[in-house]
Write a protein that binds this DNA or RNA. Structure first.
Length: 332
DNA sequence: GCTGTTTGACCGGTACT
DNA sequence: AGTACCGGTCAAACAGC
């Protein structure tokens, strides 16, 4: 379990590079062969008439190759120009996006915690699926742009690799939060009310006050699963709408009836890595987003200790402010 | 035999009409 | 209100050790 390697991207890129270097070598070999062939032809003076014809062929081939080179340079410039245009447009888009977000935030007075939003790891407290649906509307563009940023970031996260993290606490819906809300809709939905209902059925009978808040720790890495020190049992797999790659569902087996769940989503990132003449090479990179979820059903401390052990392993060296979570917990 | 994975079926929530 | 769709879970079958 959890032992699938994460070297697919590297191996693919190596394959592409090898492939292209091989093509280039083949062409060079072809040129040399032509030159050698031409030298051999010119060296035999007894076959002048045939040599003249072949020399003509060689010259025409050389001229053709020169034209191809020119075409190659021209295409290269075109691609560079397109990349520049793309970058400028993207920058302009994000600029407009930021202005729009500022306008919305002025109206909705977001909490200070939202400024600590993370691209890689987020802590989410107390969002319900209905809230996610509620606030995703009207923020599609924002979310998609952010997701694109995420995709383009190409960042890694793991126990033995560098990472970036911050905390994100969500108690007051805002446009910023809606970004993650939409992302949840696309690939990272919260545990269904089914789970909650089961927990409620079990424990709500004992205590009347049911708290539906849930907490999420989200991490991105290049391997399907993060070595978080916990034992996970896969209990399901689904192909989510809009994503051809399946999502996997894991539950913690360390503690009986552990409320912690883990969901692993696969994202495909396609980048242009090399170019040879007019042929573009695409590197298909897979990265995985692991979402830890647990329901804060009357036993936040227990869940907190579990997730703390997980995050402590994952985010070694980073301060993980659970006081904020606890402060948010009191709101529920 | 035990443990973990796979996968189709089922259930409940939500959106749509 | 009825219906369809979708996400999450269950559980039997299967595989590996």
């Amino acid at each position: 379990m959890d032992s699938i390697g994460g070297s697919a991207t590297v191996s693919r890129q190596i394959c592409h590079e090898d492939c292209f270097s091989g093509q280039e070598a083949n062409v060079k070999v072809g040129e040399e062969q032509l030159q050698d062939h031409g030298e051999k032809l010119t060296s035999s003076k007894s076959e002048d008439s045939s040599n003249n014809k072949e020399e003509g062929v060689i010259e025409s081939v050389k001229a053709e190759m020169g034209q191809v080179r020119e075409e190659n340079e021209r295409l290269k410039k075109m691609v560079q120009q397109m990349e520049k245009d793309y970058q400028s447009l993207k920058f302009h888009f994000f600029d407009l996006l930021g202005q729009e977000t500022c306008k919305k935030s002025e109206d909705s007075t977001p909490s200070s915690d939202e400024t600590e939003e993370s691209e890689l790891v987020s802590l989410c407290l107390g969002r319900t699926p209905s809230e996610s649906k509620k606030y995703e509307k009207g923020s599609n563009s924002s979310r998609s742009s952010r997701e694109n940023e995420d995709l383009e970031a190409g960042l890694t996260l793991g126990l033995d690799s560098k990472f970036q993290m911050s905390t994100e606490l969500e108690s007051n819906p805002s446009p910023e939060n809606s970004l993650d809300a939409k992302e949840d809709e696309a690939g990272e939905t919260w545990p269904p009310s089914k789970i909650l209902k089961r927990n409620i059925d079990d424990e709500d009978a004992k205590q009347g006050d049911v708290k539906r808040a849930r907490v999420c720790v989200r991490a991105r890495c290049e391997t399907p699963t993060i070595n978080d020190g916990c034992q996970w049992r896969k209990y399901g797999q689904k192909i989510a709408k809009g994503n051809p790659c399946p999502r996997a569902y894991y539950r913690c087996t360390v503690i009986p009836k552990c409320p912690v769940r883990k969901q692993v989503f696969i994202y495909i990132n396609i980048v242009i890595c090399t170019r040879f003449y007019s042929i573009l090479s695409y590197a298909i990179g897979l990265f995985f987003i692991t979402t830890y979820l647990w329901t804060k059903v009357l036993d936040f401390k227990k869940s907190n200790s579990i997730i703390f052990s997980i995050t402590n392993d994952i985010f070694d060296g980073e301060t993980f402010n659970f006081n904020k979570i606890k402060s948010q917990e009191q709101k529920y």
